[in-house]
Design a protein around this nucleic acid. Structure first.
Lengths: 211, 211
DNA sequence: TTATAGTGTTGACAATGTCAACATTTTAAT
DNA sequence: ATTAAAATGTTGACATTGTCAACACTATAA
């Protein structure tokens, strides 16, 4: 019953908050992270340059919301990807890592907002923290499932998850920041490299005594 | 014979280029990365706000030099640290990783400049690239030495070095961006965590069949 | 119906990156 | 040594930005 929106030009936008978030996403996706400006976002939403301040205390607050949204998207992607292997803990572990890297590569600007420098304490933002923790928890669950199945050696799963996170995060950053461009060995594609990195984590680099 | 500097106030600074680099380092170290502005750096060097443009084409060019310097410092720290183990390839490998993390933690602002978003192609800067490659080469050498000694399994050392780099880079970033703050298990300190992460890489997470 | 809270707008301010025009100094060619 | 040119600095301008204060419109609740 509350239809007839968007028809008339109104003083009140109606849903400016979300429009600003969407505009921010579009902007960073199209033009990269440095292009993000309160004023440009306002322009894209068709409002005056200070209208955003009615919904976000400052630039960092807007970015914090975008970051939270990014972690939520990451969680969704991880869950979708490992859902393909309901009964194979090892594949779930491996593909949680691969899916993580996929997300970073597919949404580099968004990823950079999520992990970018914490200018003004948005990292302390409870909502952001919670969404990030949820993503971490997925990794942790995969590892513990593997441990339960005797596939990963017993030990502090938290520490292992931290190592795993470091690995996929580092690799993702190196990729999207263009420190790694060509594949180490010619003919490899991104999928191969992702396997390679996740396998390194699982098998380690030590000489194998058996198997 | 060319002494008597700094005494008189001169129109020409004398060594503005290096003064600007030093001022940049001081600034980001004291106030963080966001505090870096051309004008503030100029102020600190005691010159007008456009003087830096006689030495650097723009902001990014100054940062590129700082980044290169950072990689050089990193190389030095890595070499110093592994020099303690001239005859133990495995320790050299391990401590190259630990030293890497140490550097990032000790110089977070500098590290962020080195790996920060590549706004305007400074990553393509040949000098920066070369210094970064030198650092990578150290890792690679350590791995190949271990392989020669049968301590790391045979295989593509480039790929292994990439995995190792991902691991220490990711861990460093998580640390300095405050995603990891408390230790996973209480009572641990940073040194323990660094060992933990580098050991994960070496041993992997897989169940050990032997040893 | 109207006071009030919510939402937008206009107009300011200081700071920034960078450009153009001009000044001084150093260097090199004569 | 003189002087033309190349280096190096300065002043002043411009457009852009984040953010604040003052004001305008709108929705809502008393």
């Amino acid at each position: 019953m509350q239809a007839q929106k968007k028809k008339t030009i109104r003083y009140h936008h109606g849903d400016l908050q979300n429009a600003l978030i969407a505009a921010t996403l579009d902007l960073i996706t199209e033009q990269g992270n440095e292009a993000f400006t309160i004023r440009e976002v306002a322009r894209r939403a068709g409002v005056s340059h200070t209208a955003p301040y009615r919904h976000f205390t400052d630039k960092a607050a807007l970015l914090a919301v975008v970051a939270r949204q990014g972690f939520d998207m990451l969680v969704e992607h991880l869950l979708t990807r490992i859902a393909n292997f309901p009964d194979d803990p090892l594949m779930r572990f491996k593909y949680s890592g691969i899916a993580y890297i996929e997300f970073a590569v597919d949404h580099p600007a968004h990823y950079r907002v999520m992990f970018g420098p914490d200018k003004s304490g948005s990292r302390e933002n409870a909502a952001v923290r919670k969404s990030a923790d949820t993503a971490f928890q997925i990794l942790l669950d995969c590892i513990e499932a593997c441990q339960a199945g005797g596939l990963i050696r017993p030990g502090n799963s938290m520490e292992m998850a931290l190592s795993a996170w470091s690995m996929v995060h580092g690799f993702s950053m190196l990729l999207i920041d263009r420190f790694v461009r060509e594949t180490p060995t010619p003919g490899q594609d991104l999928a191969d490299m992702m396997s390679l990195v996740t396998d390194s984590l699982y098998f380690g680099l030590k000489t194998e005594k058996t198997d």
